[in-house]
């Protein structure tokens, strides 16, 4: 019998893996940025569920503090990545990384 917090951990790991696959497999930069965000959300879910210490105890505040700073940094990193992608599109005419077939 797996508890709710373990289920959250597993879901977080699944999200991380899905994001990692999309990050590697697809050449479009927007997909890669989205994939990075999905990976980040997976890690946040793992951290949140790890903090759970049972119904009688308070949650561990240290992973929670990591998540709240992580969310804001993730938003800013996404903003920077989107600006980079826009710039790449403006300079090369495409926001897609070259694949082996095209090169």
């Amino acid at each position: 019998m797996i508890g709710t917090s373990t289920l959250y951990t597993l879901a977080g790991i699944l999200l991380f893996g899905m994001g990692l696959y999309a990050l590697i497999a697809y050449p479009h930069l927007l997909r890669k940025i989205l994939a990075l965000n999905v990976m980040g959300v997976g890690i946040f879910m793992v951290l949140i569920s790890i903090a759970y210490q049972g119904p009688t105890q308070r949650a561990d505040p240290v992973p929670h503090a990591l998540v709240i700073t992580g969310i804001v940094v993730a938003v800013c990193a996404t903003g920077l990545a989107l600006t980079l992608a826009t710039r790449i599109q403006a300079l090369t005419g495409s926001a897609r990384l070259e694949t082996d077939e095209e090169a």
């Binding site: 951990t9 790991i13 991380f16 893996g17 899905m18 990692l20 696959y21 590697i24 497999a25």
Partner: peptide, 20 residues
């Protein structure tokens, strides 16, 4: 992509085992 899919699936399985 199938290769990448296999690798990430293996990673998910390994991480899930560690979590359990």
């Amino acid at each position: 992509r199938l290769f990448v899919l296999a690798l990430t699936t293996a990673l998910i399985a390994a991480l899930a085992t560690a979590a359990l």
